[in-house]
Amino acid sequence: MSIQHFRVALIPFFAAFCLPVFAHPETLVKVKDAEDQLGARVGYIELDLNSGKILESFRPEERFPMMSTFKVLLCGAVLSRVDAGQEQLGRRIHYSQNDLVEYSPVTEKHLTDGMTVRELCSAAITMSDNTAANLLLTTIGGPKELTAFLHNMGDHVTRLDRWEPELNEAIPNDERDTTMPAAMATTLRKLLTGELLTLASRQQLIDWMEADKVAGPLLRSALPAGWFIADKSGAGERGSRGIIAALGPDGKPSRIVVIYTTGSQATMDERNRQIAEIGASLIKHW
């Protein structure tokens, strides 16, 4: 067993022997301040990774656009098919120029040779490549099948209805392509620590998230040296922004954090800054 596999296998073990965790309302004060600064709703939840206990939450059962955070769930569904012998990570998928959609920095470079399922998941999570996500959605049967996968996990809230990039439209009061912070946090925890996926697939999923290259201005910008984070960000229309993450000190994750916002007129930089400040408060009061 590799060191990384050992780390993920012992996530519940280490967490069980940690000192009790206590909620700190100071972080919620910052979440509410972010709402004021952005002029928009902000949803927040913080779960203990081992027990699933909610440590703090704000608007945990209000719907927010998922945006690209759905790509972690998508690759979880792909990995479940791999575990069941219905898919192979090494299978190569070929596609054409007509398949390319807006923001496809990886797939646009491989029109000639195609990409493997493993490479597509890596591109979808680490670079948020939209064509990679659409190609992977095709392998599982489309958005409705991802929703069905989530329902089978016990998540009857999260739903995907459309493809990239239309799913980022974020129309107010439109339930399409949305989740709730509580539902997303619980589902992410199941994917990373539950028995739904094999140990190898859980490790692969967290490795992809740990290698995320496009979430630097968010929670990662607030992390002290030595902290662990595996995350996936999302951005959408109407001032929408979000991030889902597993993080913790001492090089291992111990909490799940989900943050979503929508309806702001603020710039992307300002949305990023507010999420980073929430992260800084979380870490300060850990």
Rank of each mutant, 00 (worst) to 15 (best):
residue 25 P to A: 01
residue 27 T to R: 07
residue 28 L to A: 08
residue 28 L to S: 05
residue 28 L to E: 02
residue 32 K to P: 06
residue 34 A to N: 12
residue 34 A to R: 05
residue 35 E to S: 06
residue 35 E to V: 02
residue 36 D to P: 02
residue 36 D to I: 09
residue 36 D to G: 02
residue 38 L to Y: 05
residue 39 G to M: 14
residue 40 A to T: 01
residue 42 V to G: 01
residue 42 V to L: 00
residue 42 V to I: 00
residue 43 G to L: 04
residue 45 I to A: 04
residue 45 I to G: 05
residue 46 E to I: 10
residue 47 L to A: 01
residue 48 D to E: 02
residue 49 L to H: 15
residue 51 S to H: 03
residue 52 G to Y: 00
residue 56 E to F: 09
residue 56 E to I: 07
residue 58 F to C: 15
residue 61 E to I: 14
residue 62 E to Y: 08
residue 63 R to N: 00
residue 63 R to K: 03
residue 64 F to E: 12
residue 65 P to I: 04
residue 65 P to V: 10
residue 66 M to L: 09
residue 66 M to N: 03
residue 67 M to V: 10
residue 68 S to R: 08
residue 69 T to Q: 02
residue 71 K to D: 03
residue 72 V to M: 12
residue 72 V to F: 13
residue 75 C to F: 07
residue 76 G to S: 09
residue 78 V to H: 09
residue 81 R to N: 03
residue 81 R to T: 00
residue 84 A to L: 13
residue 84 A to N: 15
residue 85 G to A: 02
residue 85 G to C: 01
residue 86 Q to P: 08
residue 86 Q to I: 10
residue 87 E to R: 13
residue 90 G to A: 12
residue 90 G to Y: 13
residue 91 R to A: 06
residue 92 R to Y: 13
residue 93 I to C: 03
residue 94 H to S: 15
residue 97 Q to P: 03
residue 98 N to T: 02
residue 98 N to H: 09
residue 99 D to E: 13
residue 100 L to S: 09
residue 100 L to K: 11
residue 101 V to Q: 08
residue 101 V to W: 00
residue 101 V to G: 01
residue 101 V to L: 06
residue 102 E to Y: 08
residue 104 S to C: 12
residue 105 P to H: 07
residue 106 V to D: 06
residue 106 V to N: 10
residue 106 V to I: 00
residue 107 T to W: 01
residue 107 T to M: 03
residue 108 E to W: 08
residue 108 E to T: 06
residue 112 T to L: 09
residue 112 T to E: 10
residue 112 T to M: 12
residue 115 M to E: 00
residue 115 M to C: 01
residue 117 V to Q: 00
residue 117 V to S: 00
residue 117 V to F: 13
residue 119 E to H: 06
residue 120 L to H: 02
residue 120 L to V: 06
residue 121 C to F: 12
residue 122 S to E: 14
residue 122 S to L: 14
residue 124 A to W: 08
residue 124 A to F: 05
residue 125 I to E: 14
residue 125 I to N: 15
residue 127 M to E: 01
residue 128 S to A: 02
residue 129 D to Y: 13
residue 129 D to E: 14
residue 130 N to M: 02
residue 130 N to K: 01
residue 130 N to H: 08
residue 131 T to W: 13
residue 132 A to W: 13
residue 132 A to H: 15
residue 134 N to V: 08
residue 134 N to A: 07
residue 137 L to V: 08
residue 138 T to G: 06
residue 141 G to E: 10
residue 141 G to Q: 15
residue 143 P to K: 12
residue 143 P to C: 03
residue 143 P to G: 10
residue 143 P to V: 10
residue 143 P to W: 14
residue 144 K to Q: 10
residue 144 K to V: 13
residue 145 E to K: 01
residue 147 T to L: 11
residue 147 T to N: 05
residue 148 A to L: 08
residue 149 F to T: 08
residue 150 L to G: 06
residue 150 L to W: 03
residue 151 H to C: 08
residue 151 H to N: 14
residue 153 M to R: 10
residue 154 G to F: 00
residue 154 G to M: 02
residue 158 T to P: 04
residue 159 R to E: 13
residue 160 L to R: 11
residue 160 L to A: 13
residue 161 D to W: 12
residue 161 D to T: 03
residue 161 D to Q: 05
residue 162 R to V: 08
residue 162 R to Y: 04
residue 163 W to K: 10
residue 165 P to L: 05
residue 168 N to G: 06
residue 169 E to W: 03
residue 171 I to D: 05
residue 171 I to N: 01
residue 173 N to H: 04
residue 173 N to K: 08
residue 173 N to A: 13
residue 174 D to S: 03
residue 174 D to C: 00
residue 176 R to N: 13
residue 180 M to Q: 15
residue 181 P to T: 12
residue 181 P to F: 11
residue 184 M to K: 09
residue 185 A to G: 03
residue 185 A to I: 03
residue 185 A to H: 07
residue 186 T to N: 02
residue 186 T to A: 06
residue 188 L to G: 07
residue 189 R to G: 11
residue 189 R to H: 13
residue 190 K to C: 13
residue 191 L to D: 06
residue 191 L to W: 07
residue 192 L to W: 05
residue 192 L to F: 04
residue 193 T to E: 03
residue 194 G to D: 05
residue 195 E to W: 10
residue 195 E to F: 00
residue 199 L to H: 01
residue 199 L to R: 02
residue 199 L to W: 07
residue 201 S to D: 09
residue 204 Q to A: 11
residue 205 L to Q: 09
residue 206 I to Q: 09
residue 206 I to P: 11
residue 207 D to Q: 02
residue 210 E to C: 15
residue 212 D to P: 13
residue 212 D to T: 10
residue 213 K to W: 03
residue 214 V to T: 07
residue 214 V to Y: 05
residue 216 G to H: 08
residue 217 P to F: 01
residue 217 P to Y: 13
residue 217 P to V: 12
residue 220 R to K: 07
residue 221 S to D: 11
residue 221 S to W: 06
residue 222 A to V: 13
residue 223 L to G: 04
residue 224 P to S: 07
residue 227 W to C: 04
residue 227 W to K: 06
residue 227 W to N: 06
residue 229 I to H: 03
residue 230 A to F: 11
residue 231 D to W: 09
residue 231 D to G: 06
residue 232 K to I: 15
residue 232 K to G: 15
residue 233 S to G: 10
residue 233 S to V: 08
residue 236 G to V: 08
residue 236 G to F: 13
residue 239 G to D: 08
residue 240 S to G: 06
residue 241 R to D: 12
residue 242 G to W: 08
residue 244 I to K: 04
residue 244 I to D: 15
residue 244 I to A: 09
residue 244 I to V: 14
residue 245 A to R: 08
residue 245 A to Y: 12
residue 247 L to K: 09
residue 249 P to R: 08
residue 251 G to I: 05
residue 253 P to S: 11
residue 253 P to V: 11
residue 253 P to T: 12
residue 254 S to E: 12
residue 255 R to F: 08
residue 258 V to Y: 11
residue 258 V to T: 09
residue 260 Y to V: 02
residue 260 Y to I: 04
residue 260 Y to M: 03
residue 260 Y to D: 00
residue 262 T to F: 13
residue 262 T to I: 10
residue 262 T to V: 08
residue 264 S to F: 06
residue 266 A to K: 00
residue 268 M to G: 12
residue 271 R to N: 01
residue 271 R to Q: 02
residue 272 N to C: 11
residue 273 R to W: 07
residue 276 A to W: 03
residue 276 A to V: 03
residue 277 E to D: 15
residue 278 I to H: 14
residue 281 S to V: 14
residue 284 K to P: 03
residue 284 K to W: 02
residue 284 K to I: 02
residue 284 K to E: 04
residue 285 H to I: 07
residue 286 W to Q: 05
residue 286 W to C: 10
